[in-house]
Amino acid sequence: MTEKATRLIQLTPTRQDVRIAWLAALAISLHILESAVPMPLPGIKPGLANIVTLFTLLRYGLSEAIWVSVIRVLAGSLIIGSFLTPTFFLSLAGMSASIGMLALFYHSPLKPGPIGYSLVAAQAHISGQFLTAYFLFIPHPGMWNLLPFLLSFAIVLGVLNGIITRSLLRRLQ
């Protein structure tokens, strides 16, 4: 038995890293909390975790928002145990579509407020999930009948989440 040299890699987290970790943890908690609350309709969730994403975007910028979202989906699915299951891919698709649209608006001269961002994110999220579900899992034409209902909920929840985000931002100023 020879003694092996052990090399310690020291990672020094920046303030930003810590903040991302906290925000991601918060998002994951909300996500798990949500999955425990029964909803009247399947497929519909308040998307409280999106509030964290929006808050991060508007307060700390796009790259932190992306980090928080990605960590939320990856770590969140590992914690719930859905990593690499259909649920995971749906979450990933929803998150990517949502972040993609947010980035688009963030770099545009339009400058929406929290409610505008929230609406865009919620609709992109549900659309991304829907398209993934349709093309990967059940390409049945009957699926399209659900889309208007899903998007209606996305608008309602998008506005609500936007209002919550706005008041959060005001209180923490």
């Binding site: 399947p42 497929g43 259909p86 649920t87 749906l90 579900a133 899992f137 049945h140 009957g142 659900l146």
Partner: peptide
């Protein structure tokens, strides 16, 4: 979403 898929499969038959 998972339940949604199940319900869809069942209802669309």
């Amino acid at each position: 979403m998972r339940y949604l898929l199940l319900i869809l499969l069942a209802s669309q038959g």
